[in-house]
Structure formats: C-alpha cells, structure tokens
Amino acid sequence: MSSLKARHWRSRVGASASGLTAMVATLFGLVLVTFVIGRAMPVDPVLAIVGDRATPDVVARVRLELGLDRPLLEQFWIYLHHIARGDFGTSVMTGQSVVADVLHFFPATMELATLAILVAVLVGVPLGVLAAARAGSRLDAAVRVISLTGQSTPVFVQALLCLLVFYVKLGIAPGLGQQDIAFDGLVPSVTGALVIDAALDRQWDVFRDALAHLAMPALTLAFVSMSMIVRMTRTFMLDALSGEFVVTAHAKGLSPLRIVWRHAFGNVAGRLTVVIVLAYAGLLEGAVLTETVFGWPGLGQYLTRSLLNADMNAVLGATVVIGTVYVVLNFGADVAYRLLDPRVK
C-alpha cells in the first residue's frame, strides 16, 4: 500500500516538475515576445524622452544611452543578462529603476485584488452552493441573474456607475485615488498596502480614509469575480449533487447539510480552487480598467502610462512581473488541483 502511495506521489512530483519546465519556457517566450513588440512599436522612445526641440546631438546621445543603436539580437541578449540579475533598467518616465517602480505600484494592485477576491470567495462560494442545493428555486434564479449581470456588464461600466451613484449622486463614497491628498506622506511605507501600513502605524484617520477609498474599486472588482465564481460553483455543485455518491449518502441517511458541504463540496473543491486562483491572477493582471476609472495607483495604471509614453523598460518590466505572477499562480493552481483531487495523475 505504501509503495503504491509513494508511486502516486512520485508521479505527481514528476508532473509538477514538467510543469515547472513549461513555466520557465513560458516566461522566456513572454520576455521575447514583449521585447520584440516593444521594439516594433511605431513610437520612437528617444523622442518621447527628449521632446520636439532637442538638438540632433542630444537625440543621438540619448539613443546611445538607451543602447538603441545596437542590433536587435544584441539588445535582447543584453536585456536577458540584465533581467537575470534582477535589473530591468530605469524608467524614463519616473527616472528611477523599474524594480523600484514595480515595488511601489504592485502592492496597491495586490491590496485591491486581494480584498476583491476575498469578498468574491466569501460571498460567491456560499451563494453558488446554495443556488445548486436549491436548483430551480427563486433564490437560484436570483443568483443566476446577478451572476449574468456581473459577467455581461463590462467592468469599466460598473465602475463608472458606482462612481455616479455613490460618489456623485449620494456623496457617500470618496472620490478617485488611494487616499485623500491631505493624508499624503503621513504614513511610512512598510508593506506598500496603504490600509495595512496605516494600521501598523496606528494612523486611524488615514486607515479609515484609505479603507473608504479602497471599498468601491475593490467591491466593483469583487462583483465581477464573484459572478464568475458563483456560476462555476453552482455548475460544479449541480454536477456533484447528481452523482451516485450523493444518492448513496442520502440512502445512508446523512443530513442534507453534511451531504452538500462535506460530500458534494469536497468533491468540487479542487476544481473550484483552480477557478479562484485564476480569478485572482486575472485581478492582479487585469485590473487596468478599474484602476484607470478609480485613479488607483496600481501596476495596471503604471503599465498603461508607460506604454503611452513609450517607456519601454517600464513596459517590459511590468509585463514580465505580471506574466510571472500569472504563470506562477497558474502553476500553483495546477499543483493544488493535483494534490486536492486524487483522481488527477
């Protein structure tokens, strides 16, 4: 028996190792494609830096400083060398290293995405389970309508509607940004997540202000993710609840609560974990529109602005970070699925 178990674990570890190799290859492909797209863009990064009036010698010097006078392959090789050392270059827009920029902007995105996914899971999973357990009821219909609304309405429309209702009309929510300008600079950055930093520093006014600013964008994102999670949970649960093991459980006289949460939900937990992790990854890399509408100083906004300013070091750096997060989370989800579901080899 133990030998069987060992073989089972070995096969899972082997699968995970091959997944790791695929992850490295994906990351290399991501860097290559992003680099080529960056160089193929019809925007001259030098002109974006020096402006319209710079003399030809200034233009030539900046081109030299950026290494743009070298062949493309050589530029890529140098870039690979640099990122292997953790050096993504300097952002021309902010004048500081891309790594420092990412460390500054990414925590704000994580703060937003983490709160959003927590709300989405805590609300979405029970709702999905409940809808499946009472399939065909009014509750089920309501859940399906809510889910459909969340998935079919673009997130920026929801964000704008939220602003219109809660900020403009009712005036109960604060405006754009991560905090009120009056509080800027009062809290030292420890984690980069303002709500946590304010709590650590016991600056409760700043904490309340930061939490108020965080609420609307996080709930908007949470609604979108929740719509997907609730729908997937319901579908998985309907499938599980029609299984023979559930009929058996009923025949054995188990309580409905135990059947739903222990037997059926336990059966779908692996698949649901993958959905949740991928939703989280999507929030980390796909909150650009929400960040833009709410003026949230996250990585999505940083990436967009860098792109518009032809700041290619920043674009490459941020894309690699986002890509890495996505690939790593994807890999994590894959591993978790293998561990949680014994049927998967």
């Binding site: 952002s91 827009m93 500054h104 940004g177 800027d184 003026g295 100083p297 906004q301 602005r305």
Partner: peptide, 10 residues
C-alpha cells in the same frame, strides 16, 4: 515633497 509620475505632485 513628492512626485508620483502621472499621479500627483506635492
């Protein structure tokens, strides 16, 4: 005092 590109200047 502070400048965050394309966000704010204090």
């Amino acid at each position: 005092l502070d400048w965050q590109a394309a966000d704010h200047i204090i």
